[in-house]
Design a protein around this nucleic acid. Structure first.
Lengths: 332, 332
DNA sequence: CTGAAAGCGCTTACAG
DNA sequence: CTGAAAGCGCTTACAG
């Protein structure tokens, strides 16, 4: 139960000053190879590891970046991967914090973290109030990697729902005249954007819409949406807000004896792992969450260095046409 | 770009000592309501927030717990939920760190975190060398919430593969005589345990095994495994190491014109969201990852308080029988 | 009820 | 090439 060794212990044992130990460990100063060797040996033998809190208090540099995550989104893992790699390459350690509660709770938590002096920069994957986000050269910078409502700044790629219109257009071109949207919860700007894009698209193309169903993310919602359709609904095109809803819709169709893609076609969103293996396989939108995470972290690192924000790079979304939409060809 | 306010700033503006500010903010000492009020007001007005690094250095208590995660496992999110809630209730802040690299890299990272002085306890969801784990009353305690190999201590529930034998037994009782296992990567003790349990079970029951295929987690591996079976393999029971492999197997069966559950039956593991909606729906093992996370965190909190480790509670796994195994009844 | 002072474990001018 | 000393922002005996 003894206390962990400090740099002072190393110094004493090695017969040098604390200064020398510090120089050896940080690689600064000019230390003779002999001394250096001895210090390293002692440090290793007594298992010395620097106390990061003390170091960061002194240097006002923690070398640490925080990512704020919600607790329930699988896709965050992929964004995390991308962000983590960029942070690594930039020489930062990235930590993640999970937050729950209301948007006010989450905002408060982010403010605490920002003021806690332990992070040089913060990236949030969950929505917080705009008041918590940086707009200038504040320290530490706080950036959001997701878009949820108009009060928040955001990198925004993930809320882009333009491909919904491409779905509707391509299916209309393939002869479909009747559509329905199975929406996600409207608290998510991604879900809202998809719904709005759907509504605008059916109107613009002059095809019939049986309306907007759903409103939650789980597959059961997709299943129920299809079970709720009128018996004479087919042929109908189901535009689902994500792949979970879409697989639920496939199941619902089978339960009603409707075959896909003859009676019903289905599109999803997210390119979940299972989508290529459903029966029939699922047409969807591949979202490069990893790239979204990378890009968000790159923005943070650029802000940290006072550099220009890097350009967006290639688009993060593209349609993956599979069996659930039959022969609806990509429009080109 | 000005520095954040310190407790010294608050003291100066409020016309009191730093001591008084500290007492007000920590709720210790006996401060008059008037003074208390004024300090709080000033602190709020200048947006003061305590520097946690300084506080923790002084108190040697950070109130913070770290969870170490790998980057690629969806199920971790659920474990995190459970752990987070327990930490919260126990009055700790929980942070997560993502680690990559070899087991040595990860071990080193855990050791750094343990020695960094910023956490009162550490829980790892990814395998690390046993040398990084606590066995006694070390500070901070480091516990593992997952079992990967014999060198590591672990809470272990997640590596329990006993239900594989229940699958084999129930399917044999329903008349199945030919089995095959689609394994996960053997670097995971969960995958290895399932494979070993499978091998022991087919042997004990005297049923035929077509062998062990697979060796990776993605659905494509499951599909390939079924495509690799001999034409005269059916009727065959496919015991897959997880649901991703199982949905791949379903797809492979369809591609070969084999119907499920007539020609082929399939079992999965994990109770993924999609499993109730595949065609046919998937028999699987529901794993209460949230409870596993809760329990692991409870163990950590108990260690922190010097209390006895809490008992395991109810089992975390149970079979969910669905369509992919036909009429194989649970052996109640 | 309040304050002066010490010290947590580091790093970094500065002096030699 | 090395060391003595100051100080990062807090908390906490201790004194009054």
């Amino acid at each position: 139960m003894s206390l962990p060794p400090t740099s002072r212990d190393v110094a004493r044992i090695a017969g040098v000053s604390q200064t020398t130990v510090s120089y050896v460990l940080t690689g600064k100063g000019a230390i003779s190879p002999t001394t250096r060797e001895r210090v390293l040996e002692v440090a290793d033998s007594i298992g010395y590891r620097p106390n990061l809190a003390a170091r960061s208090m002194r240097t006002r540099r923690s070398g640490r970046l925080a990512v704020i995550m919600g607790v329930a989104f699988d896709n965050q893992m992929r964004m995390l991967n991308g962000a983590s790699q960029v942070a690594d390459e930039a020489g930062y350690v990235m930590e993640t914090h999970s937050v729950e509660g209301t948007v006010e709770d989450r905002t408060e938590r982010v403010l605490e973290l920002a003021a806690g002096g332990q992070y040089e920069g913060i990236l949030t994957f969950v929505p917080v109030l705009g008041s918590a986000l940086s707009d200038g050269r504040e320290t530490p910078p706080v950036l959001a990697a997701t878009a949820f409502d108009d009060k928040m700044r955001s990198v925004g790629e993930l809320a882009d729902a333009g491909l919904i219109e491409v779905f509707v257009r391509a299916l209309a071109a393939a002869g479909h005249r009747r559509f329905v949207h199975v929406a996600g919860p409207q608290g998510f700007s991604s879900a809202r954007a998809r719904q709005e894009t759907y509504i605008a698209a059916v109107e613009r193309l002059g095809v019939e819409s049986l309306g907007v169903l759903g409103g939650e993310w789980p597959p059961e919602t997709g299943r129920q949406a299809v079970l709720a359709l009128a018996d004479d609904a087919p042929p109908v095109a189901v535009i689902a807000a994500n792949d979970d809803l879409a697989i639920g819709a496939l199941r619902g169709a089978a339960e009603r004896g409707w075959s896909v893609p003859e009676d019903l076609v289905v599109t999803g969103w997210d390119n979940a792992r299972f989508g290529a293996y459903t029966l029939p396989s699922l047409t969807t939108v591949d979202v490069d969450f990893r790239a979204a995470g990378s890009h968000a972290m790159r923005l943070l690192v650029a802000a940290l260095r006072g550099e220009e924000p890097p350009p967006r790079g290639a688009t993060l979304q593209h349609i993956v046409w599979r069996e659930s939409t039959g022969s609806a060809a990509p429009p080109d």
